[in-house]
Nucleic acid binder design. Structure first.
Lengths: 134, 134
DNA sequence: ATACCTTCCGTACCATGGTACAGAGTCAAG
DNA sequence: CTTGACTCTGTACCATGGTACGGAAGGTAT
């Protein structure tokens, strides 16, 4: 089985576009060590599919609540041998998300209650401060 | 019905403790206009139940995802007459929370899947990058 | 080959939500 | 009436996650 040896063809602008972010953000991730910086063979740096995937991974991880520092660790684990550490990070974050989800759900319910109790009228004070018992 | 005219008796330290935060944070909220600064009648400023309640409100609102700026608006609405604005803010945030909850739920499920797929062994690489399809 | 756009690199700046500290004043217990 | 803890005020600093900008070099369409 031969690995298809992709020729990296994107410039940083194209890469950023595929990642759904600005060029400056890509460079920022490079500075942070989240994305490597290919060599300037000749003129301008070129990026490939792997880099696109990595940017998308960063975004997904962020939306899962990982910090950039944690994402750095995940990326280093991806290539590494320490499965149990990988599992640990994933399950810890999943548990944290369970808590966060519960918290946001309570808050949402409280807000809907507040909106309802605030009544149908449009005049008069609405005691938000005491109504919002999250 | 007579309003019980509470005599404010807490110092800033006691207030902060009741709010579950540090003194510096209370002062920070005062600077941001989220909490008013009683006059220094004599020596030291004194705080009452209303202030405690307000700090708790701030914390609850933060956990509901409001920014400090939005919280400032909510507080001004509390005393105000604009019920429809209050309802609008509450329902908008509730909807935003619904989205956020869905996003976090997806991320959590993806993480649990990842942890599972990462297997029971403890050696060898775990393709996190491609497994985490949030 | 001449515009014109992008990249490159370094450095500076931004918003958000705090946290720390110095130096002076105030308070309460012993 | 001293001592030690707490308060007050102003200003500075912090972490996180970017965003902006200037000036030089590279790439590309006409």
């Amino acid at each position: 089985m031969v690995q298809s040896q992709e020729v990296p063809s994107l410039t940083i602008g194209g890469l950023a576009a595929k990642g759904g972010m600005g060029v400056e953000t890509v460079r920022f991730y490079q500075r942070r060590g989240l994305l490597d910086t290919p060599s300037r063979a000749g003129g301008v740096r070129r990026y490939g599919q792997r880099d696109v995937q990595q940017l998308q991974f960063i975004r997904r991880s962020q939306s899962a609540g990982f910090t950039l520092e944690e994402i750095g660790e995940l990326l280093s684990l991806d290539a590494g041998q320490d499965r149990s550490r990988a599992r640990e990070l994933a399950t810890k974050r999943a548990a944290a998300l369970d808590e966060k989800i519960a918290e946001l759900t309570r808050a949402r319910d409280a807000l809907r209650r507040l909106a309802h109790e605030c009544g149908a009228g449009d005049k008069g004070p609405c005691p938000i401060l005491t109504s919002f018992d999250a």
